[in-house]
Write a protein that binds this DNA or RNA. Sequence first.
DNA 1: CTCTTAATGAAAAGGTTTTTCAGTAAAGAT
DNA 2: ATCTTTACTGAAAAACCTTTTCATTAAGAG
Lengths: 141, 141
Amino acid sequence: MTEWEQRLAGAGCRITAPRRAVIAVLMNADAPLLPQEILEQAQTVHRKLGLVTVYRTLNLLSELSLVRRVHREDGCHGYLPASAGHRHALICRNCHRAVEFTGHNDLHALIERVEARTGYRVDDHLLQLLGLCPHCQEREG
Amino acid sequence: MTEWEQRLAGAGCRITAPRRAVIAVLMNADAPLLPQEILEQAQTVHRKLGLVTVYRTLNLLSELSLVRRVHREDGCHGYLPASAGHRHALICRNCHRAVEFTGHNDLHALIERVEARTGYRVDDHLLQLLGLCPHCQEREG
DNA sequence: CTCTTAATGAAAAGGTTTTTCAGTAAAGAT
DNA sequence: ATCTTTACTGAAAAACCTTTTCATTAAGAG
Ligand SMILES: [Mn+2]
Ligand SMILES: [Mn+2]
Ligand SMILES: [Zn+2]
Ligand SMILES: [Zn+2]
Protein backbone atom coordinates (compact mmCIF):
# COMPACT_ATOMS: atom_id res chain seq x y z
CA MET A 1 0.00 0.00 0.00
CA THR A 2 1.51 3.29 -1.08
CA GLU A 3 1.66 6.41 1.05
CA TRP A 4 -1.17 7.96 -0.93
CA GLU A 5 -3.33 4.89 -0.46
CA GLN A 6 -2.70 5.05 3.27
CA ARG A 7 -3.83 8.67 3.29
CA LEU A 8 -6.99 7.71 1.42
CA ALA A 9 -7.71 4.87 3.81
CA GLY A 10 -7.04 7.15 6.74
CA ALA A 11 -9.67 9.53 5.40
CA GLY A 12 -12.20 6.72 5.36
CA CYS A 13 -12.09 6.17 1.59
CA ARG A 14 -12.03 2.82 -0.13
CA ILE A 15 -8.96 1.73 -2.08
CA THR A 16 -10.33 0.73 -5.44
CA ALA A 17 -8.72 -0.38 -8.68
CA PRO A 18 -9.75 2.80 -10.55
CA ARG A 19 -8.26 4.97 -7.82
CA ARG A 20 -5.07 2.95 -7.78
CA ALA A 21 -4.72 3.43 -11.53
CA VAL A 22 -5.13 7.20 -11.28
CA ILE A 23 -2.74 7.39 -8.36
CA ALA A 24 -0.10 5.34 -10.16
CA VAL A 25 -0.12 7.80 -13.04
CA LEU A 26 -0.10 10.94 -10.92
CA MET A 27 2.47 9.86 -8.35
CA ASN A 28 5.23 9.75 -10.95
CA ALA A 29 4.14 12.71 -13.06
CA ASP A 30 6.79 15.35 -13.60
CA ALA A 31 4.56 17.67 -15.61
CA PRO A 32 0.97 18.79 -15.00
CA LEU A 33 -1.45 16.26 -16.46
CA LEU A 34 -4.91 16.98 -17.79
CA PRO A 35 -7.78 14.73 -16.70
CA GLN A 36 -7.99 13.35 -20.24
CA GLU A 37 -4.27 12.53 -20.24
CA ILE A 38 -4.57 10.85 -16.85
CA LEU A 39 -7.44 8.79 -18.21
CA GLU A 40 -5.49 7.59 -21.21
CA GLN A 41 -2.43 6.62 -19.20
CA ALA A 42 -4.40 5.02 -16.39
CA GLN A 43 -6.50 2.98 -18.79
CA THR A 44 -3.40 0.98 -19.71
CA VAL A 45 -3.60 -0.32 -16.13
CA HIS A 46 -7.38 -0.37 -15.58
CA ARG A 47 -9.15 -0.65 -18.93
CA LYS A 48 -12.68 0.14 -17.75
CA LEU A 49 -11.72 3.43 -16.09
CA GLY A 50 -14.03 6.32 -16.92
CA LEU A 51 -13.27 10.03 -17.12
CA VAL A 52 -15.83 10.78 -14.41
CA THR A 53 -13.86 8.72 -11.94
CA VAL A 54 -10.70 10.58 -12.89
CA TYR A 55 -12.39 13.88 -11.99
CA ARG A 56 -13.77 12.45 -8.76
CA THR A 57 -10.39 11.04 -7.77
CA LEU A 58 -8.68 14.33 -8.56
CA ASN A 59 -11.09 16.19 -6.30
CA LEU A 60 -10.42 13.68 -3.58
CA LEU A 61 -6.64 13.89 -3.93
CA SER A 62 -6.83 17.68 -4.01
CA GLU A 63 -8.76 17.75 -0.75
CA LEU A 64 -6.08 15.56 0.80
CA SER A 65 -3.40 17.89 -0.65
CA LEU A 66 -1.81 14.99 -2.47
CA VAL A 67 -2.10 16.75 -5.80
CA ARG A 68 -1.90 20.41 -6.72
CA ARG A 69 -4.01 22.03 -9.41
CA VAL A 70 -2.22 24.37 -11.79
CA HIS A 71 -3.92 26.97 -13.94
CA ARG A 72 -3.14 26.89 -17.63
CA GLU A 73 -3.44 29.83 -19.97
CA ASP A 74 -5.90 27.92 -22.14
CA GLY A 75 -8.31 27.66 -19.21
CA CYS A 76 -7.78 23.99 -18.44
CA HIS A 77 -6.40 22.73 -15.18
CA GLY A 78 -3.48 20.35 -14.87
CA TYR A 79 -2.64 18.22 -11.85
CA LEU A 80 0.72 17.55 -10.23
CA PRO A 81 1.85 15.45 -7.26
CA ALA A 82 2.23 17.79 -4.29
CA SER A 83 4.80 17.73 -1.53
CA ALA A 84 3.62 18.48 1.96
CA GLY A 85 3.24 22.11 2.93
CA HIS A 86 2.47 25.23 0.98
CA ARG A 87 4.35 25.19 -2.31
CA HIS A 88 4.04 26.73 -5.74
CA ALA A 89 4.71 25.40 -9.19
CA LEU A 90 7.32 26.48 -11.71
CA ILE A 91 6.51 25.04 -15.12
CA CYS A 92 8.61 24.81 -18.28
CA ARG A 93 6.64 26.35 -21.10
CA ASN A 94 8.36 24.08 -23.60
CA CYS A 95 8.38 20.55 -22.13
CA HIS A 96 6.00 21.34 -19.25
CA ARG A 97 8.23 19.71 -16.66
CA ALA A 98 7.39 21.24 -13.29
CA VAL A 99 9.20 21.80 -10.00
CA GLU A 100 7.89 23.09 -6.70
CA PHE A 101 9.23 26.00 -4.71
CA THR A 102 8.41 27.80 -1.50
CA GLY A 103 7.89 31.51 -1.75
CA HIS A 104 7.12 32.07 1.87
CA ASN A 105 9.42 34.91 2.91
CA ASP A 106 9.33 37.14 -0.13
CA LEU A 107 5.64 36.61 -0.56
CA HIS A 108 4.88 37.35 3.06
CA ALA A 109 6.75 40.66 2.86
CA LEU A 110 4.95 41.55 -0.33
CA ILE A 111 1.57 40.71 1.11
CA GLU A 112 2.18 42.86 4.18
CA ARG A 113 3.10 45.82 2.02
CA VAL A 114 0.00 45.37 -0.11
CA GLU A 115 -2.20 45.06 2.97
CA ALA A 116 -0.78 48.28 4.39
CA ARG A 117 -1.35 50.15 1.13
CA THR A 118 -4.80 48.88 0.28
CA GLY A 119 -6.42 48.13 3.64
CA TYR A 120 -7.34 44.68 2.36
CA ARG A 121 -6.70 41.66 4.58
CA VAL A 122 -5.07 38.99 2.39
CA ASP A 123 -5.78 35.36 3.24
CA ASP A 124 -5.00 33.43 0.10
CA HIS A 125 -3.00 33.71 -3.09
CA LEU A 126 -2.27 32.13 -6.41
CA LEU A 127 1.31 32.07 -7.63
CA GLN A 128 2.80 30.18 -10.55
CA LEU A 129 6.05 30.76 -12.42
CA LEU A 130 6.64 29.97 -16.06
CA GLY A 131 9.91 29.63 -17.89
CA LEU A 132 12.41 27.24 -19.44
CA CYS A 133 13.87 24.26 -17.62
CA PRO A 134 17.65 23.67 -17.83
CA HIS A 135 17.21 21.00 -20.49
CA CYS A 136 15.09 23.18 -22.76
CA GLN A 137 17.42 26.16 -22.32
CA GLU A 138 20.22 24.16 -23.95
CA ARG A 139 18.09 23.00 -26.86
CA GLU A 140 16.85 26.54 -27.47
CA GLY A 141 19.85 28.74 -26.64
CA MET B 1 -13.41 59.27 -28.30
CA THR B 2 -12.14 57.61 -25.14
CA GLU B 3 -8.56 56.64 -24.48
CA TRP B 4 -9.40 52.98 -25.08
CA GLU B 5 -11.03 53.79 -28.38
CA GLN B 6 -7.94 55.71 -29.43
CA ARG B 7 -5.81 52.67 -28.61
CA LEU B 8 -8.11 50.49 -30.70
CA ALA B 9 -8.02 52.89 -33.61
CA GLY B 10 -4.25 53.14 -33.29
CA ALA B 11 -4.06 49.37 -33.65
CA GLY B 12 -6.01 49.56 -36.91
CA CYS B 13 -9.29 48.35 -35.46
CA ARG B 14 -12.70 49.80 -36.22
CA ILE B 15 -14.66 51.59 -33.52
CA THR B 16 -18.04 49.91 -33.61
CA ALA B 17 -21.15 50.23 -31.49
CA PRO B 18 -20.76 46.70 -29.99
CA ARG B 19 -17.17 47.43 -29.01
CA ARG B 20 -18.14 50.78 -27.50
CA ALA B 21 -20.79 49.07 -25.38
CA VAL B 22 -18.33 46.47 -24.05
CA ILE B 23 -15.72 49.13 -23.38
CA ALA B 24 -18.19 51.35 -21.51
CA VAL B 25 -18.99 48.47 -19.14
CA LEU B 26 -15.40 47.40 -18.57
CA MET B 27 -13.84 50.82 -18.19
CA ASN B 28 -15.75 51.50 -14.99
CA ALA B 29 -15.69 47.99 -13.53
CA ASP B 30 -14.31 47.71 -10.01
CA ALA B 31 -14.69 43.93 -9.83
CA PRO B 32 -13.79 41.22 -12.34
CA LEU B 33 -16.67 40.70 -14.77
CA LEU B 34 -17.55 37.47 -16.55
CA PRO B 35 -18.28 37.60 -20.28
CA GLN B 36 -21.92 36.82 -19.56
CA GLU B 37 -22.13 39.71 -17.07
CA ILE B 38 -20.49 42.05 -19.53
CA LEU B 39 -23.03 40.98 -22.14
CA GLU B 40 -26.00 41.71 -19.89
CA GLN B 41 -24.75 45.13 -18.83
CA ALA B 42 -23.64 46.13 -22.31
CA GLN B 43 -26.94 45.10 -23.86
CA THR B 44 -28.64 47.95 -22.00
CA VAL B 45 -26.60 50.19 -24.32
CA HIS B 46 -26.51 48.07 -27.49
CA ARG B 47 -29.46 45.68 -27.54
CA LYS B 48 -28.32 43.46 -30.41
CA LEU B 49 -24.93 42.67 -28.84
CA GLY B 50 -23.99 38.98 -28.93
CA LEU B 51 -21.85 36.98 -26.52
CA VAL B 52 -19.45 36.05 -29.30
CA THR B 53 -18.59 39.69 -29.83
CA VAL B 54 -17.97 40.09 -26.10
CA TYR B 55 -15.40 37.30 -26.26
CA ARG B 56 -13.81 38.75 -29.38
CA THR B 57 -13.62 42.21 -27.85
CA LEU B 58 -12.13 40.82 -24.64
CA ASN B 59 -9.38 39.09 -26.61
CA LEU B 60 -8.70 42.31 -28.44
CA LEU B 61 -8.58 44.41 -25.27
CA SER B 62 -6.35 41.81 -23.61
CA GLU B 63 -3.88 41.96 -26.46
CA LEU B 64 -3.77 45.73 -26.09
CA SER B 65 -3.30 45.30 -22.30
CA LEU B 66 -6.39 47.38 -21.63
CA VAL B 67 -7.98 44.60 -19.61
CA ARG B 68 -6.47 41.97 -17.37
CA ARG B 69 -7.79 38.43 -17.10
CA VAL B 70 -8.13 36.99 -13.61
CA HIS B 71 -8.39 33.29 -12.82
CA ARG B 72 -11.29 32.19 -10.67
CA GLU B 73 -11.35 29.05 -8.59
CA ASP B 74 -14.40 27.81 -10.46
CA GLY B 75 -12.42 27.80 -13.69
CA CYS B 76 -14.03 30.83 -15.30
CA HIS B 77 -12.13 33.97 -16.19
CA GLY B 78 -13.10 37.47 -15.11
CA TYR B 79 -11.93 40.69 -16.75
CA LEU B 80 -10.79 43.94 -15.16
CA PRO B 81 -9.63 47.29 -16.54
CA ALA B 82 -5.82 47.32 -16.41
CA SER B 83 -3.49 50.18 -15.67
CA ALA B 84 -0.36 50.46 -17.74
CA GLY B 85 2.58 48.32 -16.73
CA HIS B 86 2.85 44.98 -15.04
CA ARG B 87 0.37 44.76 -12.17
CA HIS B 88 -1.43 42.07 -10.26
CA ALA B 89 -4.92 41.84 -8.88
CA LEU B 90 -6.06 41.66 -5.26
CA ILE B 91 -9.68 40.58 -5.09
CA CYS B 92 -12.16 40.66 -2.22
CA ARG B 93 -13.60 37.18 -1.83
CA ASN B 94 -16.83 38.64 -0.46
CA CYS B 95 -17.81 41.58 -2.70
CA HIS B 96 -15.23 40.85 -5.42
CA ARG B 97 -14.02 44.45 -5.54
CA ALA B 98 -10.48 44.41 -6.94
CA VAL B 99 -7.42 46.63 -6.67
CA GLU B 100 -4.13 46.42 -8.50
CA PHE B 101 -0.69 46.25 -6.97
CA THR B 102 2.90 46.01 -8.16
CA GLY B 103 4.89 43.15 -6.75
CA HIS B 104 8.03 43.99 -8.61
CA ASN B 105 10.77 44.00 -5.97
CA ASP B 106 9.73 41.11 -3.76
CA LEU B 107 8.77 39.01 -6.74
CA HIS B 108 12.02 39.72 -8.55
CA ALA B 109 14.03 38.63 -5.52
CA LEU B 110 11.94 35.49 -5.17
CA ILE B 111 12.30 34.65 -8.84
CA GLU B 112 16.07 35.02 -8.73
CA ARG B 113 16.28 32.68 -5.77
CA VAL B 114 14.11 30.11 -7.50
CA GLU B 115 16.14 30.38 -10.69
CA ALA B 116 19.35 29.80 -8.75
CA ARG B 117 17.92 26.76 -6.97
CA THR B 118 16.23 25.08 -9.91
CA GLY B 119 18.25 26.10 -12.95
CA TYR B 120 15.05 27.20 -14.67
CA ARG B 121 14.95 30.57 -16.44
CA VAL B 122 11.73 32.31 -15.37
CA ASP B 123 10.11 34.61 -17.90
CA ASP B 124 6.51 34.90 -16.79
CA HIS B 125 4.35 34.48 -13.73
CA LEU B 126 0.81 34.40 -12.46
CA LEU B 127 0.10 36.11 -9.14
CA GLN B 128 -3.24 36.95 -7.59
CA LEU B 129 -4.11 37.77 -4.00
CA LEU B 130 -7.42 37.03 -2.34
CA GLY B 131 -8.83 38.50 0.84
CA LEU B 132 -11.30 40.93 2.35
CA CYS B 133 -11.57 44.58 1.35
CA PRO B 134 -11.79 47.20 4.12
CA HIS B 135 -15.55 47.51 3.67
CA CYS B 136 -16.19 43.78 3.99
CA GLN B 137 -13.86 43.50 6.99
CA GLU B 138 -16.13 45.85 8.94
CA ARG B 139 -19.29 44.02 8.01
CA GLU B 140 -17.72 40.67 8.93
CA GLY B 141 -15.55 41.50 11.98
C1' DC C 1 -19.39 -15.22 3.28
C1' DT C 2 -22.81 -11.73 3.86
C1' DC C 3 -24.24 -7.18 4.09
C1' DT C 4 -24.01 -2.37 3.70
C1' DT C 5 -23.13 1.38 1.14
C1' DA C 6 -19.30 3.90 -1.06
C1' DA C 7 -17.75 3.98 -5.52
C1' DT C 8 -18.16 3.28 -10.50
C1' DG C 9 -19.21 4.09 -15.50
C1' DA C 10 -22.44 5.39 -19.18
C1' DA C 11 -25.33 8.78 -20.46
C1' DA C 12 -27.10 13.15 -20.10
C1' DA C 13 -26.88 17.73 -18.64
C1' DG C 14 -24.58 22.09 -17.81
C1' DG C 15 -21.49 25.55 -18.78
C1' DT C 16 -17.86 28.05 -21.18
C1' DT C 17 -15.41 29.27 -25.34
C1' DT C 18 -14.48 28.76 -30.35
C1' DT C 19 -15.60 28.17 -35.17
C1' DT C 20 -18.42 28.99 -39.18
C1' DC C 21 -20.70 31.76 -42.32
C1' DA C 22 -23.85 34.86 -44.46
C1' DG C 23 -25.08 39.50 -43.69
C1' DT C 24 -23.79 44.33 -41.92
C1' DA C 25 -21.62 48.50 -41.31
C1' DA C 26 -17.11 51.26 -40.52
C1' DA C 27 -14.14 54.23 -42.74
C1' DG C 28 -11.22 55.55 -46.50
C1' DA C 29 -11.64 56.86 -51.37
C1' DT C 30 -14.16 59.21 -54.86
C1' DA D 1 -22.91 62.37 -50.13
C1' DT D 2 -22.06 57.95 -52.36
C1' DC D 3 -19.30 54.06 -53.37
C1' DT D 4 -16.19 50.24 -52.19
C1' DT D 5 -13.71 47.38 -49.53
C1' DT D 6 -13.39 44.31 -46.02
C1' DA D 7 -13.30 44.19 -40.95
C1' DC D 8 -16.77 43.11 -38.00
C1' DT D 9 -21.12 41.12 -36.33
C1' DG D 10 -24.64 37.81 -34.53
C1' DA D 11 -26.96 33.31 -34.83
C1' DA D 12 -26.15 28.73 -34.92
C1' DA D 13 -23.44 24.97 -34.34
C1' DA D 14 -19.51 22.80 -32.70
C1' DA D 15 -16.02 21.84 -29.49
C1' DC D 16 -14.63 21.39 -25.01
C1' DC D 17 -14.43 20.80 -20.07
C1' DT D 18 -16.84 19.43 -15.93
C1' DT D 19 -20.78 17.94 -13.11
C1' DT D 20 -25.03 15.43 -12.20
C1' DT D 21 -27.87 11.36 -12.42
C1' DC D 22 -28.74 6.74 -11.71
C1' DA D 23 -28.58 1.81 -12.08
C1' DT D 24 -24.86 -1.47 -11.14
C1' DT D 25 -20.66 -3.09 -8.87
C1' DA D 26 -17.47 -4.20 -5.50
C1' DA D 27 -14.75 -2.71 -1.09
C1' DG D 28 -14.28 -3.87 3.35
C1' DA D 29 -16.42 -4.33 8.00
C1' DG D 30 -18.56 -7.78 10.64
MN1 LIG E 1 -7.48 29.24 -14.18
MN1 LIG F 1 1.90 30.51 -1.41
ZN1 LIG G 1 11.58 22.08 -20.45
ZN1 LIG H 1 -15.32 43.35 -0.21
